[in-house]
Design a protein around this nucleic acid. Sequence first.
DNA 1: GTCTATAATACGATAGAC
DNA 2: GTCTATCGTATTATAGAC
Lengths: 240, 240
Amino acid sequence: MSDIVKDSLPAIPETAFGDSGAETGTADSRAEIGTAHKQKTRIQITNEAKILEAALEVFSKDGFRGATLDRIATAAEMSKPNLLYYFSSKEDIHIALLTKLLDLWLAPLRNLRADGDPREELSLYIQHKLQMSRQLPRESRLFANEVLRGAQHIGPLLKENLYDLVNEKAAIIQSWIDAGKLAPCDPRHVIFAIWATTQHYADFDVQIRSVLRRDDDDQSHYADAEQFLTTLFMGQLVKD
Amino acid sequence: MSDIVKDSLPAIPETAFGDSGAETGTADSRAEIGTAHKQKTRIQITNEAKILEAALEVFSKDGFRGATLDRIATAAEMSKPNLLYYFSSKEDIHIALLTKLLDLWLAPLRNLRADGDPREELSLYIQHKLQMSRQLPRESRLFANEVLRGAQHIGPLLKENLYDLVNEKAAIIQSWIDAGKLAPCDPRHVIFAIWATTQHYADFDVQIRSVLRRDDDDQSHYADAEQFLTTLFMGQLVKD
DNA sequence: GTCTATAATACGATAGAC
DNA sequence: GTCTATCGTATTATAGAC
């Protein structure tokens, strides 16, 4: 794998919060009502960011039901009532978090270009997704938890935003199939397979570390994973 | 895909419970102590099976923390104290369930034969795992939930049983690599990829149905999945 | 905006009659 | 073995002082 390819991967932010343009959806109702532009105070912005960061930590570890406001408040260095001053309920925090992270989560797929070479485009997508599993495992587990439970909080987002994006990008893959560059198949399953294989390294981290006997801070298997997945998707696994 | 191959797949039981040899681990302490053989009564066997079936339904849907004894008791058509007569705690039920189902869950991998053809063996493994996702999605989600939370209840089982089995079967794949039939790679990642892609159809069912616009009882996409995954792993996705 | 105190309920587990 | 009743605790959310 060339360094040129690696360098072309978009940078992944260390934290997804703290952007000045932050909007948390339901929290807007508390902004000044008399003004046309709902402007957030500096303390609002930083505290909401602290809460969402804490919530990501706790929700991704324990799931929605397993997480408690106590733990989130402690992680955010805040009292529980103060936390509920910024978000009106536990569910509110969860939805705000998922909504805020969905764009980040789908960014790699957005980068899929119709005019690129199929091998190059798929390789880049795999690398980018794998990099996100390595660097943002909490986000991966947050979504895995939510979808596993039936996506009760982001069901509509899946049926609209996700549906639109996937089918738009599936059309690109279909064009490669029509051009004879890929075998005939439902192109959406190509996307499913890339999601599954890459996110597996974040979501099933404990299992993988058990099998590979890797310590918690050892991420050396990600290099093997990238090499293997590239081999697999480029059709070079089985040989004649 | 030939019918011969399909027919060679081992049958998957509709329910994993009710076997007369049922042992639930901690529940043994209540058996007659004075006798050498801890014999379970008929009512014990049927009730424990009913509880485990109900627990599978509830745990797989809501996760360990999200599940309540009330819901399990209702599903088992039993009072809550009566349920706790057979299992001493909620955690007990969960561990008994996971332990009982682990063998079933790993059965497809056990079938991997060293003397078979790599293409044939991998195809069979994929088909068997995919069939389990289709027919036993609750079991898939039960394990996904558990591993996602750090495998707090079956950590030791992963580090022993799973480690042993995977590395034993990885040796078979390694022998295929050594024979030049597969590309050089860490063979354990081959297993990870098959787990990830097949279990994805059970664990992320809601997401897949959102993208494909499939109703809850529509399983027609599994045929596409099998065709695609076979194409992918047989190295026939990308074409020159 | 932040806090202490507390209301209101959900839940795991037990007591004790039958 | 099964039940009703209940204990004790954890947890979400609110009240109201500052």
